[in-house]
Design a protein around this nucleic acid. Structure first.
Lengths: 144, 144
DNA sequence: TGATACTGTTGGTTAAACCAACGATAACCA
DNA sequence: TGGTTATCGTTGGTTTAACCAACAGTATCA
């Protein structure tokens, strides 16, 4: 909530799932605001990041790497393509697939977004020491 | 993601905000499924829980206790009222306010949902020891 | 070769979290 | 006391994220 009055009723405040979802909501809000300031959505960053890691990839692979449904990858890639941040070409080895690739502008955008996302980590984790941050990530990891 | 292939690209997997949002998404999915099986949405549980803690309360207070926008409280309360889980009456001391109150059926529903939500905690936190659960909640708390 | 699986697309749905503007009422304080 | 400011609940929206069914085309495997 924008106004974090921390009035939350005890029934809710005692739930781990409540704390988790509150923390994630706050984190999401900060991330979203910072990405929006650079003209990107969460899905767009995720696809760009996956492309940065994978290099040219099919949409199906992008979906797996960015944890996106393939229909959402379709929309996001169309969007990125319209903004000339990626190019698409047929895969010569598998004509079911499209190979998606970063353009120079796309790679530059990703570089900018990576910096923004790093800032977001600091904002979100501001209350924790480095050791606590590691512990948190480790525990969250065990939830999946 | 339904298919948790944990393929996530390193750029994403290294982000605390990513782990946080993945864990929260999973937790949310489990909670949503369990609540839906009892015929309730997340907003509905939150309002019922707030009523259980506060007793008769104005919609504004419910919004603060459940971290809901007051417009969303309006919709949720209308819904609960249509299902005879709450009653509404004018506050004699402040005619701007409506006092919302659990019916017997509403209290019974809340009792059932509380049990369901407790089960959800166990499902979501299954990978953690009790000490780790406390640590996690403590760290999440420091993020807000 | 025939069944099965995968790819990308069209065209949706739902929950959650937000927002502007309004009329009515209460609170504040000059 | 009167006038400003704040609060309450409502109408009527928006956006993001996360999902789904069904289809045609292509690859794979038995």
């Amino acid at each position: 909530m924008r106004t974090m009055n921390s009035y939350a009723s005890p029934r809710l405040a005692n739930l781990a799932t409540w704390q988790l979802s509150r923390a994630a909501a706050r984190s999401h809000r900060v991330l979203h605001e910072h990405l929006a300031a650079e003209g990107a959505s969460g899905y767009e960053y995720r696809v760009l990041a996956a492309l940065g890691d994978l290099g040219p990839a099919s949409q199906a692979d992008l979906g797996r790497a960015a944890a996106l449904d393939r229909r959402d990858v379709t929309h996001t890639v169309r969007d990125l393509h319209a903004r000339k941040l990626v190019i698409r070409r047929a895969d010569p080895d598998d004509s079911r697939q499209m190979l998606v690739e970063l353009t120079t502008a796309g790679a530059a955008m990703l570089e900018r977004l990576d910096l923004v996302v790093d800032e977001v980590q600091d904002v979100v984790l501001a209350g924790l020491t480095p050791a606590q941050r590691r512990t948190l990530v480790h525990l969250l990891d065990k939830l999946s």
